[in-house]
């Protein structure tokens, strides 16, 4: 180790030696052996974390490829939070740059879906604040914002990723349902499909949605008010959607921005 640097630089040197996975010119055989242990520990821990957050991807590509991806991801987007459960979001982007994605182009979207599922399972899903519905009578829709549950997300894909995911989470058998997987993979590229990922009683579910519901939820996430939503999506049946969203815990509460506005007084 270079002893003439500050403590911070010496610590950086060790980090660099570990994350680069290469051989480093250390003084002794035993130091080389020690470094290899840290490199191997890092790779194995990263791999274990990724097989937990990406179980379907892991089964699709197998152990060797997952180890290789773990190592690449450590360098592409190294952990920075101290919680392995928070690491791995960049998997889809990384996959898209690999030969694997050229051969199996649906893999990045599988990874994207799995990350949303994983994040959903880690978020709280508190009961919706139904008292906040009173805001609908008190405020103009332009002032009302819908706050979605943290565990809710939506995604779109050109690939049958929901069917592929479900073949690995078949209720009637453990492991992969090969017949379902075969059927899903045979679908090849599709028109855009849209999915809603949500958490209910600690169980994540994925359900297909129509494009307008996908865009509606995306717009809510972007902070678009209820009034603007109704203008943007005139065909969307908000009155029917609201009770369903409340029942499924997709909405946390309604909030109002700025001062109350009473439409009848205008």
């Amino acid at each position: 180790m270079p002893h003439n640097h500050s403590l911070a630089l010496r610590q950086q040197f060790l980090i660099d030696s570990i994350f680069s996975f290469g051989s480093v010119d250390l003084k002794t055989e035993s130091a080389q052996q020690g470094l290899k242990i840290y490199q191997n520990n890092l790779l194995m821990t990263a791999n274990r974390a990724l097989t937990i957050s990406y179980p379907v991807l892991n089964q699709l590509i197998g152990y060797e490829a997952m180890i290789a991806l773990s190592r690449m991801l450590l360098q592409y987007a190294p952990p920075s939070e101290g919680d392995w459960g928070e690491w791995g979001k960049a998997m889809a982007d990384l996959l898209a740059q690999t030969p694997l994605a050229r051969e199996y182009p649906y893999l990045p979207d599988i990874a994207r879906l799995e990350w949303l599922v994983w994040q959903s399972s880690r978020n709280m899903a508190p009961a919706p604040d139904t008292e906040s519905l009173a805001l609908l009578a008190e405020y103009h829709p332009d002032q009302i914002l819908i706050e979605l549950a943290q565990s809710l997300s939506v995604m779109q894909s050109l690939w049958p990723v929901q069917a592929i995911w479900q073949s690995h989470h078949s209720a009637d058998q453990e492991g992969v349902n090969e017949a379902m997987l075969k059927r899903a993979l045979a679908q090849q590229k599709t028109d855009h499909s849209y999915m809603l990922i949500s958490l209910n009683h600690y169980k994540v579910s994925i359900r297909p949605v129509y494009a307008n519901e996908y865009h509606w939820i995306q717009s809510i996430r972007q902070g678009v008010s209820l009034g603007e939503l109704l203008d943007l999506y005139p065909g969307f049946d908000f009155a029917t959607w609201l009770p369903v969203a409340l029942h499924n815990g997709w909405i946390s509460r309604l909030t109002a921005r700025e001062q109350p506005c009473f439409p009848n007084e205008n």
Binding site: Y38, L42, T45, P79
Partner: peptide, 15 residues
């Protein structure tokens, strides 16, 4: 906690 390639990094191990 340290820096690697100018990014904040967590070693993921007890160094």
């Amino acid at each position: 906690w340290s820096q690697w390639n100018n990014h904040n990094v967590h070693a993921g191990d007890l160094l």
